[in-house]
Computed example of a mutant assay.
Amino acid sequence: MSGFLSLFLDKVLVVLAFRKYMFSIIPIYNLYGTGRMLDTRQLRYFLEIAKQGSITAASVTLGVAQPALSLHLRKLEDQLGTPLMHRQRSGVIPTEAGLLLIERGRRIVDEMSRTIDDISTLGSDPSGIVRIGLPGTISAIVSLPLITAAHKRYPRITINIAEAMSGFISTWAAEDRVDLCILYRDIGLPGFRSELLLEENLVVLSQARIDAAEHVSLKKLSKQMMVLPSKGHGLRDLIDKEFQAIGINASVALEIDSYANIKSLVANGFGASILPAHAVRDERDTGTLFVSQIEEGGLRRQVHLITPTRRPVTRAQLLVTELLREVVSDLINTETWSGAKLPDGSIKFP
């Protein structure tokens, strides 16, 4: 049956029916001469049932009566000649055939949505709202050049940027409250693509003094009191992991999540810290703080671009995603994003 469904889903015929002021796209799925036809409504209903794990829950989100939705599912199974869902008292779970239909069907429905969007804006400037979630430290670097570039290239696209810590942004992405986002880690959720966007260098900052070393080892650093973000913060977790990898722990004097406050505390002698190089560039240049490189090959933090794969992506979202990559490449090229490098170590973004 899996082979049969593969053939079914690999052949898609699209009929464009143009009307006076609008057009509609009518998808027809032909089961290779079997005379069995499906439309995207059947696929959407099935996918929502699978997502909710319950016909009752899906009927609420779809606004379709439960008996009617159950009938749609039975008809779909009859058309394909195989069960797609195991019915249980607690809900439904996909069969092997159902899992295959979820995988292939979601791509088809998403592609149809993108096709409608692309055709509707064909011959005109792309338009729409694109919502982006960014950590505050990245937003401070990326937001202005991205918005400026988008305004110049795509004047009808509006970019809305929401700032927060990575944990909150991950939740926003899962709830579809942002269209794409940048995180300091892989999102680790199904339905998303995580692309390694860049790596940034982490450095040691300490109170400016004559005897400060250009390079410092983590072992030596562990003997100093440190001002670090609190546990659970992505940067703190990375720092703790690196210390633990060599069998030691950081000596923490104070915990605070604000980079500005960390720098102020370090400048006033409360301890050393570890932050991204770009976050301390101004203080390094003015001599307010002393910046040292970490020995043992240095310490780097990965930055990921997160985009959805479980739902339709508009033309505006695709264009802004590509523009974001270009802007990041330019920021690294011009050393505006200090201490950052692209994944392959090159300057030009692939």
Rank of each mutant, 00 (worst) to 15 (best):
L7K: 12
F8P: 00
L9T: 12
K20T: 09
Y32K: 14
R41Y: 14
R41H: 14
E48S: 13
K51E: 11
Q52I: 07
Q52L: 12
A57P: 02
A65E: 13
Q66A: 15
P67A: 11
L69N: 02
L71S: 10
Q79T: 13
M85I: 15
H86F: 13
Q88G: 14
V92S: 01
G98E: 03
I108T: 05
V109R: 01
D118E: 15
I119L: 15
S124W: 07
S127D: 08
V130E: 01
V130M: 02
I132L: 12
G133H: 04
G133T: 04
A140S: 15
I141S: 07
L144G: 05
L146Q: 03
T148Y: 15
A149Q: 12
R153D: 04
P155E: 03
I159K: 02
N160F: 13
A162D: 11
M165H: 13
F168T: 13
S170H: 03
A174K: 10
I187A: 07
P190L: 04
F192G: 00
L196M: 10
V204C: 06
I210W: 09
L218D: 01
K223I: 07
Q224R: 15
M226Y: 06
V227C: 03
H233T: 10
G234F: 12
R236I: 10
D240L: 10
K241M: 13
K241S: 15
F243K: 00
Q244N: 14
I246C: 05
G247F: 08
G247K: 04
G247Y: 06
I262P: 00
K263S: 07
S264V: 10
N268S: 15
G271K: 02
H278R: 06
R281M: 09
R281C: 00
D282M: 09
E283K: 11
G287W: 05
T288P: 00
L289Q: 02
V291E: 04
S292T: 07
Q293F: 09
G298T: 03
L299Q: 04
R300K: 15
H304L: 11
I306K: 03
P308H: 06
P312Y: 03
V313F: 03
L318S: 11
V327G: 01
D330S: 15
T334I: 12
T336G: 05
W337A: 09
W337Q: 02
G339V: 09
K341T: 09
L342Q: 08
P343C: 10
G345I: 09
S346K: 13
